[in-house]
Simulated assay, not measured.
Amino acid sequence: MKISKRNVFRLCWFSLITVFFIWQWMAYQSRDLPEDTFKNDTRVSIEKSSDKITFIANSPKSKNEILFFQGGMTDPKAYAPLCRQIANNGYTCHLIKMNWRMPQWNYKKIAAIFELENGNYIIGGHSQGAKMASQFVYENPDLMKGLFLIGTSHPRDFDLSKRTIPTLKIYGELDGLASVSEVLENKDKLPKNSSLTVIKGGNHSQFGYLGKLLTDENAKIDLAEQQERTLKELIRFFNKIGIENEMDR
């Protein structure tokens, strides 16, 4: 039986497409998580539900709690090590699971899960999760105590420059999905009291425990170092918000 050139081309094309999507799917899976990521100990307790993974800070414990939005298409567990380390530093951290791994479809769910009006929450996330965290702040003024954006060029489609919410943007020097030029291009749309921090040698993928994502550049630092630097900047930011809240009382 003869196979036409057209059918051979179609077979090769669909095979390449299939391999590409499988590779992409694997890149967005969590990997190499530290063994203690989901283990309870004296400092951190873990609670899991269909909507979130909560890393509860046992001691010390801040009144402010963290809402962390996963990146688009990524396995939320890729951010569990960072969330655990946040809890190790005294901040209960809620890692929000998005339906179909799409924050843009599911970011408003936190309004039904938490009593946001009566709480002390700092919101943020990575990549598309950061975008939707900023979107939530835009749509719900004065509801959050702070905003942190990791590995994103947003806010891009709306303007937060008239807001006064404490804001931190962390970006990678070698981020191939949210480049330095894109980050700086939208700097004027951030709240006026925002601070920006670049992770030298860091890329997009290593903000989570992920494979190397398509179009991302090669990092010049390893995963552990990028995670440690990111954590350091986040804790400094959270602590500053706590001090400012105490001064306002």
Rank of each mutant, 00 (worst) to 15 (best):
Met1Val: 13
Ser4Val: 11
Lys5Met: 14
Val8Ile: 15
Phe9Asn: 11
Leu11Ile: 09
Trp13Ser: 15
Trp13Thr: 15
Leu16Thr: 10
Leu16Met: 14
Ile17Lys: 10
Phe21Thr: 15
Trp23Pro: 04
Met26Val: 14
Pro34Arg: 03
Pro34Ile: 15
Thr37Leu: 09
Thr37Met: 10
Lys39Trp: 03
Arg43Trp: 03
Val44Trp: 07
Val44Asn: 00
Ile46Pro: 05
Lys48Cys: 00
Ser49Gln: 10
Lys52Tyr: 10
Lys52Arg: 14
Thr54Ile: 14
Ala57Met: 07
Ser59Lys: 05
Pro60Met: 10
Ser62His: 11
Glu65His: 07
Glu65Ser: 02
Phe68Val: 11
Gly71Thr: 01
Thr74Phe: 05
Lys77Arg: 15
Ala78Arg: 07
Ala80Trp: 07
Cys83Gly: 01
Arg84Ala: 01
Gln85Val: 03
Asn88Gln: 15
Asn88His: 13
Asn89Phe: 06
Gly90Asn: 12
Gly90Val: 11
Tyr91Arg: 00
Thr92Phe: 06
Cys93Asp: 02
Cys93Thr: 12
Lys97Gln: 11
Met98Asn: 08
Arg101Thr: 11
Pro103Val: 04
Gln104Asn: 15
Asn106Glu: 13
Lys108Val: 08
Lys109Glu: 00
Ile113Tyr: 04
Phe114Ala: 05
Leu116Gln: 04
Leu116Met: 03
Asn118Gln: 13
Asn120Ser: 15
Asn120Phe: 12
Gly124Glu: 08
Gly124Leu: 04
Gly129His: 02
Gly129Glu: 05
Lys131Phe: 12
Met132Pro: 07
Gln135His: 02
Phe136Ile: 01
Phe136Glu: 05
Phe136Ser: 02
Asn140Ala: 03
Pro141His: 05
Pro141Ala: 06
Asp142Ile: 02
Lys145Ile: 01
Phe148Thr: 10
Leu149Val: 01
Ser153Cys: 12
Leu160Tyr: 02
Ser161Trp: 05
Ser161Gly: 04
Lys162Arg: 08
Pro166Ala: 12
Pro166Leu: 09
Thr167Pro: 04
Gly172Cys: 06
Leu177Glu: 05
Ser179Phe: 12
Val180Met: 13
Val180Ala: 12
Ser181His: 15
Val183Asn: 03
Leu184Pro: 05
Glu185Arg: 10
Asn186Gly: 08
Lys189Trp: 04
Lys189Ile: 10
Pro191Ala: 02
Pro191His: 01
Ser194Gln: 08
Ser195Gly: 06
Leu196Pro: 01
Thr197Trp: 11
Gly201His: 03
Gly202Thr: 08
His204Glu: 03
Gln206Thr: 11
Gly208Pro: 07
Gly208Val: 09
Lys212Pro: 02
Leu214Ala: 12
Ala219His: 03
Leu223Pro: 09
Ala224Thr: 12
Gln227Leu: 09
Glu228His: 01
Leu231Gly: 05
Leu231Met: 09
Lys232His: 15
Leu234Tyr: 00
Arg236Ile: 00
Phe237Met: 09
Phe237Glu: 08
Lys240Phe: 00
Glu244His: 08
Met247Asp: 07
